[in-house]
Simulated scan of single mutants.
Amino acid sequence: MEEKTYITIISIVGISVSLLIIMAVTLITFFHHTKKKIVEKEQEKASLKIKHQQKILQTAIAIQERERKRIAQDLHDAISSKLNIVSLTTNVLLIDKTINDKQKTALEQILNITTGTLESARKIAHDLLPPILNEFGLKAALQELFEDCTKYTKIAIEDNVEALTRLSKNDQLHVFRIVQELINNSVRHGKANELMVYIEQHDTGFVLHYQDNGQGFTVKDVMEKSGIGLQNIKSRVKILNGTLKIESTPNNGSQFIIRCNYER
């Protein structure tokens, strides 16, 4: 009798332990599955957030480019055309033999100011929207940018730029704006007088290597408190599905290495 009772107790204990193990496994499986679902939802949420941010970013840059185009058109139509009329009228007055020396001097000053203003307006419009980019592509646009830069400043530029023909016109514009912004930063903030720009194309993408001999900076400080120019560069690199690497120390110049893939 006692032996039977003992066996019964062992059986009950065994069943209880088995049930506890089953419950434990069930709970662990449930929590694991729940955690996995939560992680998946969080990843999905993060992915949607990134896509949303990317869309906002692309929209903001598209608006910026439209505004540049509008201002460039206004400069050409509303300002340059009227200044051309002033220039032509002044030239007509200058050939009038009835004017005295004082009037002639005044007209020559007006002509010089008008010519200078026309050149400035042309340069601003060109910086806002380089027409050569649409007509002849990125390489030609960058070559013109480098020539203008060396013409109007004392900067020497060493370059070796491939055409990147596999990029769309819109993406070529992003690359152009990145180089343009890098040069502006080197001149305004870095006080550089020597630049190097290399763009090399590969089967899957391209690499842009930019270097200057300017004042340099502490990378961590700049990344934490980046200005509008650097933010603009980082935004365009993201749109191009690229990565940005910055190397710089105070008084030792700066390097920017951008790697982008064609696949998105």
Rank of each mutant, 00 (worst) to 15 (best):
K4W: 12
K4N: 14
T5E: 10
I9H: 09
I12L: 15
I12F: 12
G14D: 06
L19N: 13
A24R: 13
V25I: 15
L27S: 15
F31E: 14
H33E: 04
H33M: 00
T34L: 03
T34C: 03
K35M: 11
Q43E: 12
S47C: 03
H52E: 12
Q54V: 07
I56V: 13
Q58K: 15
T59R: 07
T59H: 09
I63T: 12
E67I: 06
A72S: 14
Q73K: 15
L75C: 13
H76A: 14
D77S: 13
I79Y: 13
I79P: 08
K82T: 03
V92F: 07
T98D: 15
N100M: 11
Q103W: 04
Q109D: 10
Q109M: 08
T114G: 11
K123Y: 14
H126V: 00
L128V: 05
L133V: 05
L133Y: 08
N134P: 01
F136E: 15
G137T: 01
L138Y: 10
L138G: 10
A140Y: 03
T150W: 06
Y152R: 06
K154V: 02
A156C: 01
I157D: 07
V161D: 05
L164A: 04
L167D: 08
S168K: 10
K169V: 02
D171S: 14
Q172K: 12
Q172W: 02
Q172A: 02
L173V: 01
L182N: 03
R188P: 00
A192H: 02
L195I: 05
M196E: 13
I199E: 12
H202L: 02
V207W: 03
Y210R: 05
F217T: 06
V219P: 00
K220L: 00
D221N: 09
D221L: 00
V222M: 02
G227A: 11
G229V: 06
G229W: 11
I233N: 07
I233P: 04
S235E: 13
I239T: 11
I239A: 03
L240Y: 14
N241P: 08
G242Q: 04
L244K: 07
K245P: 01
S248I: 01
S248D: 04
N251Q: 14
S254F: 05
R259G: 11
Y262L: 00
Y262S: 00
